[in-house]
C-alpha cells in the first residue's frame, strides 16, 4: 500500500516538476540517472566494475548528433542509431573485458574507452575539440516539436521511465536471477552448469545499450556531443553517482545522479571547488555509509520493522 502511494507521488512529482524547476536541469539529471541505472545493472547486479562507461554514453551521443545534424534523420531513428552503436561497442568491449575479473576488468574497460576518446578527438566527423554543436532537435515521429522545452521534458522523462523499467524487469527476471548468482558466487554458478561468460556479456551489452540511450537523449537536450561525454571523468562520475545513491538498489543511482547534478549546477559558481566537494562527499560516503543513501535508508527501515524479511537491497 505504501509502495503504491509513494509510486503515485513520484509520478505526480515527475509530471509537475518542470513547472517548479529549470527543465534543462531536470532533463540533465534524468539522463544521468538513466546512465547511472544502466551502469548499476553491471556493478550492482553482476558485480562488474566498468571504468569505461563513458565510451557508451559518448559514442551514442556522437552517433545521434551526426545522424541528426549531418544525415538529417528524425530523432527517434537517431536515438535508435546511437543506442545501437553503443550496444555494438558494448558487445566488442564486453567480449574482450569479461575474460578478466576485478581490477583487470576495470583497467581493460578504461583502456578501451580511452581509445574511443582518442578516436573522438581525431576523427574528421566528430568535430575534435569542438564536438558536434547546434544539433537540431527535430520533430518526434514527424509532428511532435521537441524544440518546445516542456514537450522535450516529457519526452526525456518517457525515455528515462522506459529505460528504468527495462532495467527493473531485467533485475527481476530469470536472467537477473542468474546474474545475482554470478555476483554472489561465480564458481558456484559455473558448477551448476551456467556458462557465466555468456550471461556477463549479455548484461554488459544491455548496460552499454542503455547507457547509449542516455547519451543519445542527452544529445537532444543539450544539442551537443562533445569530448566531455567520452572523457574518463564521465566514467568516474557515474561510479560516484551509483555508489553515493546506493549500488544494487533500483532507486539509488537515480538519487545519486540527481544529487551530483544538483551539486554541479548549483555550486557551479564555486568553480573547480566543485570537484573538491565531490571528492569530499565520495570519501565520506565510502567511510560512513557504504551502502549509499538509498541502501542505508533501506537498511534502517528494515531494522525499524525488525521483521525477518527478504532483503530488498539486493533482490
Amino acid at each position: 500500500m505504501i509502495r503504491i502511494i509513494s509510486l503515485v507521488a513520484l509520478i505526480i512529482i515527475a509530471l509537475v516538476a518542470p513547472f517548479f524547476f529549470y527543465p534543462v536541469f531536470l532533463m540533465k539529471a534524468l539522463c544521468f540517472a538513466l546512465f547511472a541505472c544502466a551502469f548499476n545493472l553491471l556493478l550492482g547486479y553482476v558485480g562488474l566494475l566498468s571504468f569505461g562507461h563513458a565510451a557508451f554514453l559518448g559514442s551514442a551521443a556522437y552517433v545521434t548528433g551526426h545522424s541528426m545534424k549531418v544525415l538529417g534523420l528524425p530523432p527517434e531513428l537517431s536515438i535508435l542509431a546511437g543506442t545501437g552503436a553503443a550496444a555494438l561497442l558494448g558487445l566488442g568491449f564486453g567480449w574482450l573485458a569479461i575474460r578478466r575479473q576485478g581490477i583487470y576488468f576495470a583497467m581493460i574497460t578504461l583502456a578501451l574507452s580511452q581509445m574511443v576518446f582518442f578516436f573522438a578527438l581525431q576523427a574528421p566527423f566528430t568535430g575534435g575539440e569542438d564536438g558536434i554543436q547546434a544539433i537540431p532537435r527535430g520533430y518526434l515521429l514527424g509532428f511532435i516539436d521537441l524544440n518546445n522545452q516542456l514537450t522535450l521534458y516529457y519526452f526525456v522523462l518517457a525515455m528515462f521511465v522506459f529505460g528504468w523499467l527495462v532495467i527493473y524487469r531485467t533485475i527481476h527476471s530469470p536472467f537477473g536471477q542468474v546474474l545475482k548468482a554470478i555476483r554472489e558466487n561465480e564458481p558456484r554458478a559455473i558448477s551448476l552448469g551456467y556458462r557465466t561468460d555468456q550471461y556477463k556479456l549479455m548484461a554488459f551489452v544491455l548496460s552499454a545499450a542503455l547507457s547509449g540511450m542516455a547519451g543519445a537523449t542527452k544529445t537532444l537536450v543539450f544539442q551537443l556531443a562533445s569530448l566531455t561525454d567520452v572523457h574518463w571523468h564521465m566514467s568516474g562520475e557515474v561510479v560516484l553517482m551509483t555508489l553515493l545513491g546506493g549500488m544494487g538498489t533500483v532507486f539509488g543511482p537515480v538519487v545519486g545522479a540527481f544529487l551530483v547534478v544538483t551539486i554541479q549546477n548549483y555550486l557551479a559558481q564555486l568553480g573547480s571547488w566543485v570537484t573538491i566537494i565531490q571528492g569530499g562527499i565520495f570519501v565520506v560516503c565510502v567511510l560512513l555509509f557504504r551502502r549509499g543513501i538509498v541502501g542505508e535508508a533501506m537498511a534502517l527501515a528494515r531494522k525499524l520493522r525488525k521483521k525477518p524479511e527478504k532483503e530488498d537491497a539486493v533482490s
Binding site: R169, T170, H172, S173, P174, F175, G176, Q177, V178, K180, A181, E184, N185, R188, A189, L192, G193, Y194, Q198, Y199, M202, L206, K310, E311, V314, S315
Partner: peptide
C-alpha cells in the same frame, strides 16, 4: 551458497536452467 538470496531462491537457481528462460531478461521472475 548465494548468501544474499533466500534458500528457496538458491535452490531455484540450480533448477531454473532447464526452463530454458535463463537469458530472458524481459520475463518476470
Amino acid at each position: 551458497v548465494f548468501p544474499h538470496l533466500s534458500l528457496l531462491e538458491n535452490v531455484r537457481i540450480a533448477l531454473q536452467r532447464e526452463l530454458g528462460t535463463s537469458f530472458h531478461f524481459w520475463k518476470s521472475d
